[in-house]
Amino acid sequence: MNPVRATTMSVRRQDAFLAAGLAVLASVVAVSFGSGRRPDALGWALLLALHVPLAWRRRAPLTVLCVMIPLIAVYHRQDYDHSAPTAASMVLLYTVAVTGSTRRTVTIGCSVVGLMLVLKADHGMAGVAESFQIAGWIVSMLVLGGYLRVHRQLTDAALERAERAERTHEEEARRRVAEERLRIARDLHDLLAHSITLIGVRTSVAAHVLTEDPDRLDRAAVAKALDDIADTCRAARGELRTTLEVLREDGPPDERGPLPGLGALPDLAATARDAGAKVELAVPADAVPAAVGAAAYRIVQEALTNAVRHGGRADLTVRVGVHERDGALHVDVTDDGLGSGAAPPGFGLVGMRERVRSVGGTLTAGPLDTRGFHVNAVLPLHTNGEEEVR
C-alpha cells in the first residue's frame, strides 16, 4: 500500500475513534449533569449527529465547522444539557485554529462568540456570566491551536533548513571526493607515464648494447642502463607512496609530504637527458605559491615525457623555460621531435588542462608548423587552489 495513503487512513481512523469517544463522553455528561433538560429523541439525535463530522476534522475543518455549528446551535436552542457538546466544540475550535491561518482563526472565533451571545441573550445576567465563561474556553482553544500551529511551522522550517544544510554538506563532500579522485588520477598518470617512459627508453638502450655486437659487449654501458632503470624504479616507488598516502583514512594531511615545485625541475631535466634527449632548462622564477609550482612541475613532467616518448629522434632537443611576467608564471616547453604532433590522444593533455584550470590559468598545446610540439601555460601567481593541485 502507498505510504501516503496508509498514513491518511491512519489519521481518519484516529479521528473516527476520537469522534466516537467524545460521543460517549457527551452521552455520559447528558445523563449525569443537570445544566439543562435531559435530551429526548430529538436531543439524542442532535447530540450524536454533531459528533459524526469530527471523523473528517483534519481533512476538511471548515466543512466540519459549517456542519457542526448549526447542529450545536439547534441543540442549545432547545435547552438540552449545555455541557454535553462542550468537548466536541472545543476539539472543533482547536482543529480550526491549528490547521488555518491567524486571520481565519480570529474571524471564526469572533463569529462563534457572537453566535453564543445571541443564543444567551434571553437568559439575562446568568446568561451573560455563562457567556464570559464559555468565551474564555473558546479563546483558550483558539490560542492553543494557533500556538501549536506556529510551533509546528517553526519546527518544520528548522528541519527543512537542517536537511538542506545536510544535503549541501553531502554534495560538498561528494564534490571533494570527486576532486580528490581526479587529483590522484592525474598524479598517477603523470608519475607512471613519466617513469615507464624512462624505463622503456633505458631498457631499449640496454637491449641495443646487448644485441649490437655480442662479441664486444660493453658491460659498463649495460650496467649503467640497468642502474638507471633501478634508480627510476626507486624514485617512482617513493613518489607513488607519497601520492597514495592520501588514501589512508588515518593519515593526517601533513603526512603527504611537500608538493613538488620549481626546485625539482632540474631533476626532471636530468632524467630526460639520461633518456637521450638534449634538454635546455631556464628557470629564472623562484618563490611561487605551492599550487602554482606543483602545476608547473607536472606540466613540464608531462611535456618531457611526451617529447621523449613521441619525439622519434636520437638528437631530440627540448627547451624548457619558466618565467614570471605580468603577475603570472609562464611555462614554455618546445621540442623538435618528429612524432609529437602525431601522438595519439590520451590523458596527458587532459591532465595538464585540469591542473592549469585548477589554479585559474590557461594552456595552449599543439604541433609546430614545421616539426616538434609546443606547450605553453600561463599560471596566475595569486591563487586559492593551493590544496587542489598536487
Results as ranks from 00 to 15, higher is better:
Ala49Arg: 06
Leu244Phe: 08
Val74Phe: 02
Leu226Tyr: 10
Leu93Ser: 00
Lys278Val: 04
Leu62Trp: 13
Asp190Asn: 08
Asp326Pro: 02
Asp215Thr: 11
Arg161Leu: 13
Ala185Asn: 05
Lys120Val: 08
Leu93Val: 07
Ala157Asp: 14
Ala343His: 06
His194Asn: 12
Val29Trp: 03
Val283Thr: 13
Asp286Gly: 11
Arg355Tyr: 06
Ala135Tyr: 08
Leu25Gln: 02
Asp250Leu: 03
Met352Gln: 15
Arg149Asp: 06
Ser89Arg: 00
Leu304Asn: 03
Ala328Tyr: 05
Arg57Leu: 15
Leu154Gly: 14
Pro70His: 03
Leu262Arg: 01
Gln301Asn: 08
Arg355Gln: 11
Ala206Gln: 01
Ala185Asp: 15
Arg5Asn: 10
His374Pro: 02
Ile138Ala: 10
Gly43Ile: 01
Glu387Val: 13
Ala225Glu: 01
Leu148Lys: 11
Ala73Asp: 11
Arg103Ala: 14
Leu381Tyr: 04
Met125Asn: 09
Val118Tyr: 07
Pro344Gln: 08
Asp40Trp: 10
Ala60Leu: 14
Asp315Trp: 06
Leu115Gln: 09
Ser111Glu: 07
Tyr80Gly: 00
Gly372Tyr: 03
Asn376Arg: 15
Leu381Lys: 00
Thr232Gly: 01
Asp315Val: 05
Asp332Ser: 13
Arg57Trp: 07
Val279Cys: 05
Thr232Met: 02
Cys66Phe: 14
Leu281Asp: 00
Val350Ala: 14
Val333Met: 00
Ala88Ile: 03
Ala121Asn: 05
Ala206Arg: 00
Cys66Glu: 06
Val356Thr: 03
Thr63Phe: 12
Glu280Arg: 12
Pro253Gln: 10
Leu22Lys: 00
Ala20Thr: 11
Arg353Ala: 05
Ala41Thr: 14
Thr242His: 12
Arg390His: 12
Ile138Lys: 06
Leu191His: 08
Glu249His: 10
Val331Asp: 00
Arg355Thr: 15
Leu281Lys: 02
Arg248Phe: 09
Val350Cys: 05
Ala73Met: 11
Gly21Asn: 06
Thr197Gln: 14
Lys278Trp: 03
Glu180Asn: 15
Ala129Gln: 10
Glu212Trp: 07
Leu379Gly: 02
Asp274Tyr: 06
Arg390Asn: 06
Phe17Trp: 13
Gly21Gln: 07
Arg371Pro: 04
Leu50Val: 07
Arg59Thr: 13
Val201Leu: 04
Leu329Arg: 04
Thr370Pro: 03
Glu245Pro: 03
